[in-house]
Computed example of a mutant assay.
Amino acid sequence: MYAEERRRQIASMTAVEGRVNVTELSERFDVTAETIRRDLAVLDREGVVHRVHGGAVASQSFQTSELTLDSRLRSATTAKMAIARAAMEFLPQGTGSIFLDAGTTTSAVADLIGQTPAAHQLSIVSNSLPIALSLANNGVQYVQLLGGTVRAITQAVVGDTALRTMALLRADVAFIGTNALTLDHGLSTADAQEAAIKSAFVTNAHKVVVLCDSSKLGTDYLVSFASLSEIDVVITDSGASEIFLNSLRDREIDVVVVDDLARS
């Protein structure tokens, strides 16, 4: 496991459980205690956790920083592919319609759709330049890319033009990516304009499927774009806290946990 991925999982565990212990983290990730202390020092400097004697406690601040698209493509790759494969089970049959949000896990879904001839009859709306190109290049017959302004860091289309188009559209299923998921703040992201498009996808879909690797559970970003009451399904990986997942189930959310090798 890369240090960045391990730190993201430590941050998620701290947010969900409130406190983490150096010894327990060392055993979980099969690294030395000194390595864990360095991880906690990095997370503390970033404001993600607060170091305390023997471990760390959760930070209550809302995050605003974003990784570049290339960095996110290299993060939790095994988990994202496993999540994408599970997401394929929620595709509508035949000539149904879907919203496909911008993001690296949703990009993995797009790749799988391109490899699945039976899914090429779907009508797909996306706000992602890479996703739209991938789908069109792989034989999907109806791909609508929202028009508007392109955010360089995520290559997502945002703005008033995209929102006006979204007001006219409906879909059977929305596949949504997120920077973070908490019980109180719901789904959140760093940018208000991108959050507005995500919110429109959620509002205008019959079913909402959230694709969220475990490193994002329990973390908070600045802009909330959907509450838990608006979510139907969460697909995550085996690094997720069972306590957190049970809290989602208590809210009548269908939770799918995929087997992955992301922590090996």
Rank of each mutant, 00 (worst) to 15 (best):
L145T: 09
N137A: 13
S97G: 08
A174R: 03
T165N: 02
V125T: 15
G186A: 04
T105A: 01
G148V: 07
L183I: 14
I83Y: 08
I153Y: 08
A108L: 10
V157N: 09
T178W: 04
I153T: 13
L129Y: 11
F90S: 10
I176S: 00
A118T: 14
T154K: 09
V150C: 13
A102T: 11
A84R: 09
M166N: 03
N138G: 09
S107A: 15
N138A: 13
L122N: 08
Q93G: 13
A171V: 02
R170V: 01
L187P: 00
V109T: 09
S123G: 09
D101T: 06
S97R: 14
G94I: 05
A87S: 07
A87I: 00
A108E: 15
H185V: 00
L181E: 08
D184C: 00
S97E: 10
L163N: 10
Q121T: 14
L181W: 02
L91T: 02
D101F: 02
H120G: 10
G94E: 08
G114C: 04
A132E: 05
L112D: 10
L163A: 10
V140N: 07
L187M: 08
A119M: 10
H185Y: 02
I131M: 06
V140Q: 04
V158P: 00
A118W: 04
S107P: 01
A180I: 05
A180Y: 02
D160P: 04
S134C: 12
A84F: 08
A162M: 06
A82F: 01
G94P: 00
